[in-house]
């Protein structure tokens, strides 16, 4: 534990100072017209903030409960650590957004295996690797439990005789109205994946012209507003996803399917983790809409949409696996 803290402190301090150190000039100039690129302290700040936030989170929950009058001992140390972490996290996010609004050159990887590629893009893909593992752990846990349950499917398939477990799909898939939120959500995510592709395409299209169709021209009058409006459409679809998710969860809880059961626990954790990803994506997109409306996205800085788009498409991909596994099966 002590060694972990020492290593952690080393990476935090060294990472911070390394990030604010000016880079050598010219070696990664990709001619995009921005000034010298910067090292950013934001990632290390956000990671540190998140570390402290999670370290003290248990104390945060206990203290909040105590403040609400629930009979539990407060943990003020944990509460303070968690709050400090949250503040550092917000500072990191604020700094990241400030830097993004100013704009900087894309840093290009010099070594293998991503040599010549934008570091942010490579970083996003490496991040997505870790995300795949997170969802793989949910699926492997679900599969392990599911193969042990005698569900309606197993009975129908003649593999056991009496139903001992009710899954979310048992409560959802038999009625079109109960399956509707999940089904609509599937379409909402696919459409939102396309709208963000359109936002990126519009941002990078130097020859973009308003449509000749009147109503489309009113919706997308200029390139800058078209990008912004495509992003707004994406946010609306993502928000629809969250709203329908809440409706669906409310229905399940009203049916007695809650997190207290084994089937409920894996369902709510897996779909909740996915919903959290959607929610975080919405927060990032709010910033992107602000940027699209003020600074604007164009062929020079449109990478931001592309890299966020990778995350958003991954969220869609995860749903491609979650929907059949948890709603249809």
């Amino acid at each position: 534990m002590v060694m972990t803290f020492i290593y952690g402190a080393f990476y935090i301090i060294a990472g911070f100072f390394n990030s604010i150190r000016p880079e050598d000039h010219g070696h990664d100039d990709n001619g995009d017209g921005y000034g010298d690129h910067h090292g950013s302290a934001s990632p290390i700040l956000m990671a540190t903030g998140l570390l402290f936030f999670m370290m003290g989170f248990q104390g945060f929950v206990k203290t909040t409960k105590a403040m609400l009058g629930i009979d539990i001992a407060a943990d003020y140390v944990g509460f303070a650590i968690s709050c400090a972490g949250f503040i550092i996290l917000i500072i990191g996010i604020g700094n990241w957004w400030r830097e993004d609004l100013i704009g900087a050159k894309e840093q290009v990887a010099l070594g293998k295996p991503f040599g010549g590629q934008h570091i942010r893009k490579a970083g996003m893909w490496v991040f997505l690797i870790s995300e795949v593992m997170v969802f793989a752990s949910f699926f492997s846990a679900y599969l392990r439990m599911r193969t042990g349950w005698c569900t309606q499917w197993a009975v129908d398939a003649g593999r056991c005789k009496t139903v001992d477990t009710t899954t979310a799909s048992d409560l959802l898939r038999h009625d079109i109205m109960t399956l509707l939120p999940g089904a609509v959500n599937t379409f909402a995510l696919i459409i939102s994946s396309y709208t963000i592709v359109l936002a990126l395409k519009t941002a990078k299209d130097v020859d973009w012209k308003p449509s000749e169709t009147k109503w489309v021209r009113r919706l997308l009058p200029t390139r800058q507003k078209a990008v912004r409006n495509y992003l707004i459409a994406t946010v609306l679809l993502g928000s629809l996803f969250i709203i329908l998710k809440i409706i669906e969860w409310s229905h399940l809880v009203a049916e007695g399917f809650d997190i207290g059961t084994q089937a409920g626990s894996i369902f709510f954790i897996a779909t909740g983790a996915h919903g959290l990803h959607v929610f975080i994506g919405l927060l990032v997109m709010l910033f992107m809409i602000f940027k699209a409306d003020t600074v604007g996205y164009d062929e020079k800085n449109g990478h931001g949409i592309e890299y966020f788009g990778l995350y958003w498409h991954f969220v869609d991909l995860a749903w491609v696996a979650i929907f059949p596994a948890f709603y249809l099966y």
Binding site: S140, L143, T147
Partner: peptide
Amino acid sequence: MLWGIGLSNPASIMDL
């Protein structure tokens, strides 16, 4: 993970 954890249930009724 899916193979080593997901399909390793000793009490599986699915007769894998």
